[in-house]
Amino acid sequence: MNLRKVATGLSALALIFAVALQARSLHDLIKLPVKHDKQEYRSGSVSQREALALYSAKQKQDSFSACKDQFPAGKPLDIDRMPAKMKPMALCSDNFAVLYSKTSKTPMIVVERLSSAQLNDAKGEERTNAFYADPRIPSGARAELSDYRGQTPPVDRGHQAPAADAPNQKAMAQSFALSNMVPQDPTNNRKIWSKIESDVRKYVKRAGGNVFVFTGPIFDSGHAVIGKNKVWVPTRLFKLVYDENSQRAWAYILPNSETRIEKPMDYSNFVKATGLRLLESQVVSGSLHRS
């Protein structure tokens, strides 16, 4: 036996063993990324199967039973009192409720219950921009992504429940359903309406409790339509705010165009302008500005 070869072989084994021990030590010291089971919702296309998975079994039903908490006093809007020609249906998401129209292929009214705690959770939440057709609405009765493409003049997919109100990734994903969108003038959506949304959030953060926000389109005579599915383009948009603690309510109604923000109106003037009695069962004791 060649003792020199044996010694050399043993030295090589010792070296390999030492390297292995060192690698094990480094592995213990370095925290490697851990793969979580938590669902991620990122930018890009969303398939109908993936979109449907965003909603619970109760949220897939044509009912407000899964989102009563989004309405003042837990009393949802009465669908039976809505115009039958609008073919209304109820849609629930985690953090907002939609009274949807299968005629206009847009929401009619979107309701949110906001609080300082929710908006603190929403701060810094990544915006996904992953728009999708709502799979809970039958094809032909809903807007499709193609309806918004290549329009002249161009239109934005305008959120009614803002993405910036979403307190987590799933709520953010749900906010990009087209059932939460109306065709909106880009300047109006990105500047004027965005400023109103920001002002409402600032108020909610100062408020002492729940603030309910109703948002929706107004379709005056002669409104336009877009896309193969003839999605109605609102001529105006409204936002009604109700502070549950102070019982104050105020509203904005603005043209769907490049315009400027006007002073908010009180609830009685909002009802006269729209015919919508959205706080009929609530006590309204004042407006944003005390007289």
Rank of each mutant, 00 (worst) to 15 (best):
V283D: 15
G286C: 11
D69K: 01
S281H: 15
T8G: 15
K230Y: 06
S116M: 06
T259F: 01
P167Q: 03
L77M: 00
P255A: 03
T187P: 10
E144Q: 09
S11Y: 06
Q184S: 01
V211I: 06
V110K: 00
G209R: 09
S175C: 00
R49W: 09
S268C: 03
E50G: 10
D121T: 06
G158W: 11
S257R: 13
G124Y: 13
M82P: 05
V111P: 08
V34N: 08
Q169T: 11
G150V: 13
D28W: 01
K239I: 01
I253M: 09
R127G: 05
R290V: 14
K228Y: 02
L278H: 07
T215Y: 08
L52V: 03
N129M: 08
F270T: 06
R24S: 10
L26A: 12
L29Q: 15
F219C: 08
D80K: 00
S257K: 15
P154V: 11
K85V: 07
F64N: 05
L26F: 10
Q247R: 12
V231E: 07
P33R: 13
P154K: 08
L114I: 07
K263V: 15
S43R: 15
V182H: 04
W193V: 06
N2T: 09
S198R: 06
S287N: 10
Q70N: 04
S63P: 00
H223P: 02
M265F: 07
V241W: 11
F212Q: 01
L279T: 11
A251R: 02
A53P: 11
S268Y: 09
A57C: 02
F214Q: 03
R136D: 11
L178E: 02
A53I: 07
H289M: 14
I79D: 06
S101E: 02
K5R: 13
E40H: 13
D28K: 09
I192Q: 10
